[in-house]
């Protein structure tokens, strides 16, 4: 399986994603510079975390205008797998591939810490390896992760099981105290209607090796890779 990691000016988790895909999971991986206009031969795209274009204007807003993004949109339209992590999630919402927006954290602070998220949908191609309602420990690192969408959009997400990850306690309880940034309904990750585009604020690539304190993020990559092999 071949992963393409999209690199925007200001991406800074691109190397982490590349390392995990290539060296932890022994898959093919290549960097795709944002000026590229071909995604040929790639099976899954990762939009990594970071501060593309310095977060100018709004997080992810300017990255959307990069030449590669129209290719990403058409790749997703054809059913290709797209995973947006942190700034990648922000870019996917700005590009209209996912609904809603990631606003400034409720307490205005940049938060970098381990969080627990509950897997609320374990039947996606990204989460098949997890158990239903399993709580996993994955770190967040963002200033703008406060998920917001209007009531109609939230109802649509909730009504169709498209909220994939929710901030929770270690026991998987979704409480206001477990919500680090003020996200509506503790939303930490969502998927599109077709089920091939996932956006999440926590960083699974930072929780894929024991040396980093958690291997709970591995399931996400394993789900993608096994799902692809079983096609």
């Amino acid at each position: 399986m071949k992963f393409g990691i999209i690199v925007f000016p200001g991406s800074n988790c691109d190397h982490d994603c590349y390392h995990v895909v290539k060296h932890v999971f022994n898959q093919e991986a290549e960097y795709v510079w944002h000026k590229e206009t071909s995604l040929k031969g790639l099976d899954c795209l990762i939009l990594p975390g970071g501060f593309s274009y310095g977060d100018y204007l709004r997080t992810g807003a300017i990255a959307c205008c990069s030449p590669v993004m129209s290719e990403v949109v058409s790749f997703a339209g054809k059913g290709g797998l797209v995973l947006g992590i942190c700034n990648g999630f922000q870019i996917l919402t700005e590009a209209g591939l996912l609904p809603g927006v990631l606003m400034r954290n409720r307490d205005l602070k940049f938060i970098c810490k381990d969080t627990f998220v509950r897997v609320d949908n374990d039947s996606t191609v990204f989460t098949g390896r997890y158990g239903k309602a399993e709580a996993i420990k994955v770190p967040i690192a963002h200033a703008d992760g406060n998920y917001f969408a209007d009531k109609e959009a939230i109802d649509a997400l909730e009504g169709s099981g498209r909220v994939v990850f929710r901030y929770s306690t270690a026991a998987g309880e979704v409480t206001p105290e477990a919500n680090p940034n003020g996200s509506v309904n503790n939303i930490a990750g969502i998927i599109n209607e077709k089920g091939n585009v996932l956006g999440m604020m926590p960083h699974p690539e930072r929780a894929a090796e024991q040396a980093l304190g958690s291997i709970d993020g591995r399931g996400l990559f394993e789900s993608i890779i096994e799902g692809f092999a079983g096609q």
């Binding site: 204007l57 709004r58 300017i62 959307c64 700005e94 609904p99 809603g100 927006v101 606003m103 917001f148």
Partner: peptide, 8 residues
């Protein structure tokens, strides 16, 4: 297209 995010 760019200057505002009309969601919010």
């Amino acid at each position: 297209k760019l200057l505002a995010n009309t969601v919010i």
